Amino acid sequence: MVDLYVYYKVRDEDAERLAHLVCALQTRVIQPGHARLLRRPESKDGLQTWMEVYPDVPESFAATLEDAVAGAGLDGLLQGPRHVEVFTEIPPCA
Score class of each variant (00 low, 15 high):
2 V>E: 09
3 D>W: 03
4 L>N: 01
5 Y>T: 09
8 Y>W: 01
8 Y>V: 00
9 K>M: 04
10 V>C: 05
11 R>F: 06
12 D>I: 09
12 D>E: 15
14 D>Q: 08
14 D>G: 08
14 D>T: 00
15 A>C: 07
15 A>V: 02
20 H>W: 07
21 L>H: 07
23 C>D: 15
24 A>K: 09
26 Q>L: 08
28 R>T: 02
30 I>G: 02
30 I>T: 01
31 Q>M: 14
31 Q>K: 15
34 H>L: 12
35 A>M: 04
38 L>Q: 11
38 L>I: 06
40 R>M: 13
40 R>G: 12
42 E>N: 10
42 E>I: 05
42 E>A: 09
43 S>W: 11
43 S>D: 03
45 D>R: 05
46 G>M: 00
48 Q>L: 12
51 M>H: 08
54 Y>M: 03
58 P>H: 10
60 S>R: 07
60 S>N: 03
61 F>K: 11
61 F>R: 01
62 A>V: 12
64 T>A: 06
66 E>P: 05
67 D>Q: 15
67 D>A: 15
67 D>F: 09
68 A>N: 03
68 A>C: 04
69 V>A: 00
69 V>P: 04
70 A>S: 15
70 A>R: 15
71 G>E: 10
71 G>S: 01
71 G>M: 02
74 L>G: 02
74 L>P: 03
75 D>L: 13
76 G>T: 08
76 G>R: 01
77 L>P: 05
78 L>Q: 00
80 G>W: 03
81 P>D: 14
81 P>E: 05
82 R>G: 09
82 R>V: 04
83 H>T: 15
84 V>T: 09
85 E>D: 05
86 V>M: 04
87 F>Q: 03
88 T>A: 08
89 E>S: 14
89 E>I: 11
91 P>W: 07
92 P>A: 06
92 P>N: 01
93 C>N: 12
94 A>M: 07
94 A>S: 07
